[in-house]
């Protein structure tokens, strides 16, 4: 348990450190994910503890967004002043992104399955 959690932290730390050192504007946790994947690939397996810790974190992923969401209380003035642009952009862009992504996925999948 503890070792698995430590491994996740170490990978994130390595990712953050590499981003700082290289001066690239790339998110540390994503690099951490790539490092984690590299570690697993080298080991050739994940291990039951790592699976359990990762699954617990990912199963409760929604909870982790709550503290940031409550921040809405601080942004109410800015949001109220720009509500139309914000709602329009979030709704329009999210629906459009869903449609484009699923359409391209299906189109390419069909194209390769029918040579």
């Amino acid at each position: 348990m503890l070792e698995a959690l430590t491994l996740l932290f170490v990978c994130q730390l390595a990712g953050e450190a590499l981003v700082r050192l290289s001066g690239l504007s790339f998110p540390g946790p994503v690099l951490g994910m790539a490092i984690m994947l590299g570690v697993i690939a080298i080991a050739g397996r994940t291990g039951a503890n790592l699976e359990r810790v990762a699954d617990t974190l990912l199963k409760n992923l929604s909870l982790l967004f709550v503290p940031a969401a409550v921040g809405v209380i601080q942004q109410i003035d800015l949001l109220a002043a720009n509500w139309l642009a914000v709602i329009g952009a979030v709704v329009g862009s999210t629906v459009l992104t869903l449609i484009v992504t699923v359409y391209v996925f299906r189109a390419v999948a069909r194209a390769i399955s029918r040579p």
Partner: peptide
């Protein structure tokens, strides 16, 4: 709780 978003992102390597 917010802090755990970072390790959770790293944890995505496991289902991948």
């Amino acid at each position: 709780i917010h802090f755990l978003l970072g390790p959770a992102t790293v944890a995505l390597a496991i289902p991948l």
